[in-house]
């Protein structure tokens, strides 16, 4: 099926389900029924459905269909669950425990939305970088580039063109090659430092002779390589961290939902 058709269909089904839930809530309220029980169970079932994705992921050998199809279902069911969640909670949320539960759900839902967006955008950014490196390899490559840069800088000092390049390396480039990037960069990878370092290197041209300039160009390309590695690393770790948060909170969520359900049924006044 065409991707666009599938998306339209899934969205329609999701919105239809949400509308159905809203109608159900209205219908129940009109009959003095307990609407929160209805939305609660809907939420519980759909949340349980969300857990199916991790179940599918953990069992490779079963013939349960493709993970991508499951992810689609997961996404739309998550949208549905989030909207039902809004119907379920009273506003403002009262009670410390309920507040924790609601905020946990909200965090999971929001991280899920962020993930679905980043799953689309991160690959595009990564593909634009050129050479693709896996995140496990990057530290090694980073170390290699740093070592090369260091050797090159030492070498340039021996050419007898003065210590200009070596000094510059010492002051500006060494910290760049040897250290990790700041947390802000890891959160929002950008090209600010790369551009600044390249400009500074470019400015050195007038003080260097041929060999020095060759080293300078080589250093510039190393800066680019290092920055590309950092960029890829930041993008990938960012995605993985967000996914870790999303996944880690689900079990807390499951526990709290369990307690919530038990409490509700233990304390329900309107037991029929």
């Amino acid at each position: 099926m065409d991707i666009r058709t599938r998306r339209t269909l899934s969205l329609t089904i999701t919105l239809f389900a949400v509308g159905l839930a809203a109608l159900g809530v209205q219908w129940t309220r009109d009959r003095l029924g307990d609407a929160s029980t209805l939305t609660g169970w809907t939420l519980l079932v759909s949340t349980a459905g969300l857990f199916l994705l991790s179940a599918r992921k953990s069992s490779v050998n079963s013939d349960w269909g493709r993970v991508s199809a499951w992810l689609q279902v997961h996404t739309y069911m998550g949208t549905f669950a989030s909207l039902v969640f809004l119907m379920h909670i009273g506003w403002p949320v009262r009670g410390l425990f309920e507040l924790c539960l609601a905020s946990c759900f909200a965090t999971v839902a929001l991280s899920g939305i962020a993930l679905s967006i980043m799953n689309r955008r991160t690959p595009l950014k990564l593909a634009a970088v050129g050479v693709d490196r896996s995140v496990e390899q990057i530290p090694a490559f980073r170390a290699a580039v740093a070592r090369d840069a260091h050797a090159l800088a030492l070498q340039s000092a021996e050419f007898g063109e003065g210590a200009t390049l070596a000094e510059h390396y010492q002051q500006r480039l060494l910290p760049f090659f040897q250290s990790q990037r700041s947390w802000l960069y890891r959160l929002i990878p950008n090209g600010i430092q790369r551009r600044r370092l390249l400009r500074e290197l470019n400015d050195l041209e007038r003080y260097l002779a041929d060999q020095g300039n060759a080293s300078r160009v080589a250093l510039a390309s190393m800066v680019v390589t290092k920055d590309d590695l950092d960029y890829q690393y930041a993008l990938q770790t960012r995605l993985r961290t967000l996914y870790a948060l999303h996944a880690a909170l689900t079990w807390s969520l499951a526990l709290m939902i369990g307690v919530h359900v038990v409490l509700v049924y233990r304390f329900q006044g309107a037991l029929q």
């Binding site: 993985r240 870790a244 079990w251 526990l255 709290m256």
Partner: peptide
């Protein structure tokens, strides 16, 4: 990374259960 993620999940679960 996947294993540390799994451990993080487990720790979160244990922490939540403990707090509860």
């Amino acid at each position: 990374s996947w294993f540390s993620r799994q451990m993080l999940t487990l720790n979160f679960g244990i922490l939540t259960a403990g707090i509860l």
